[in-house]
Amino acid sequence: MDKHNVKGFLEFVYDFYRSMKAHEITLVYEGEITHQITKAFTSLTESNMAKQEESNTVQKKVFHVMVECLQNISKHADTFGSDDYLFAGRGIFMVSKGSEDYHVTTGNVIENRKIEELTDMLEEINSLDKEGLKQLYKQQMRQGRLSDKGGAGLGFIDIARKTGNKLEYHFLPIDETSSFFLLSSSISRTL
């Protein structure tokens, strides 16, 4: 980097820092989501929440949502290119804290052909009330076999049940074959 670029880069870092502060982002990560990463992030967030004296209920719910979100990425994020393993199981993961809620947000690449099925699943979950979600969870557990990747298809239902909120999601097109899938879950701090 020449001198001009260094300055530009450092200014970017400061802007980035200010954006993080403005959005109260307590954790942000981009990269491969492994089991070790999942363990590290959950224990870091747990100790932060304990320090802030969040209630046990809030701590447990945030923990649940984080684990399910991280496992969604590690098991279901698609590769960019045909068989570019470097992009498998990667994504962005973010935890932010407002005065009322915690937000756990994930983003990962998915193939366009999977969008319809995923949307149907998320819409079905969002259309159900507490009792409906409970029935769907029980039904999925009874019928759903573990996929070859070990996902039980229960993660989204569990997030909706634990938070009591709708799943907020969005797809942004990347190219003809893939899109970026964003999912945000809110956990009330006053539980």
Binding site: Q71, M141, G151, L154
Partner: peptide
């Protein structure tokens, strides 16, 4: 005290 959804199927 805690189990994830992947474990829930195995507990069943």
């Amino acid at each position: 005290v805690y189990f994830n959804t992947a474990s829930s199927k195995l507990l069943l």
